[in-house]
Simulated scan of single mutants.
Amino acid sequence: MGDNSLPVEIAFALPAKQRLVALQVPQGTTARQAVALANLPQLFPELPEDTFTKAPLGIFGKALRNPDTQTLRAGDRVEVYRPLQIDPKAARLERAKRQASGQ
């Protein structure tokens, strides 16, 4: 892509399967655009495509407020976050109930 391209990585993980896709993207590419370029639906055909097109995104563990406008810098690792299966507060409450009952 020439001198105006940036090396970035796109990361996505399931409990039993993880992928890190290295890309060269043009300067000015947004986080959401980079995820689309990584073609994750092809790597994870078991998931619906909107898992990637609508997912929350982050860079190096920091959630992005607006991934549709956040432009990337050289070396960024864009992370695609999965939806939570259970609310963390509900999970803590359930654990506390089990501990209180001696289980």
Score class of each variant (00 low, 15 high):
Q70G: 05
I86Q: 11
T51L: 06
G2Y: 09
R98C: 09
K62D: 13
P41S: 08
N66V: 00
P67M: 01
A36M: 03
Q33D: 13
L64Q: 11
D68G: 00
T71H: 11
P41G: 07
G102R: 04
N66F: 02
A38Q: 00
A16W: 13
P67R: 01
R19C: 07
G28Y: 14
T51S: 15
T69N: 13
I10F: 04
A90K: 13
Q18T: 14
T29E: 10
A34V: 00
L47D: 03
A13G: 05
L93P: 05
I59V: 15
G61C: 12
K97M: 15
F12N: 00
D87K: 01
D76M: 06
P83W: 02
A36S: 11
A91M: 08
R98M: 08
V35S: 00
Q27N: 05
N4P: 04
T69D: 13
R19L: 10
P26M: 11
R92H: 15
P7H: 15
R92A: 14
L57T: 03
L64G: 09
V78R: 02
G102N: 09
A34M: 01
T30V: 13
L37G: 03
L20G: 07
A16R: 12
K17P: 04
L43K: 07
G2V: 11
V35F: 01
E46D: 14
K89Q: 11
E79N: 02
A55L: 05
G102Y: 03
Q27G: 06
K54V: 07
P88G: 09
A90S: 13
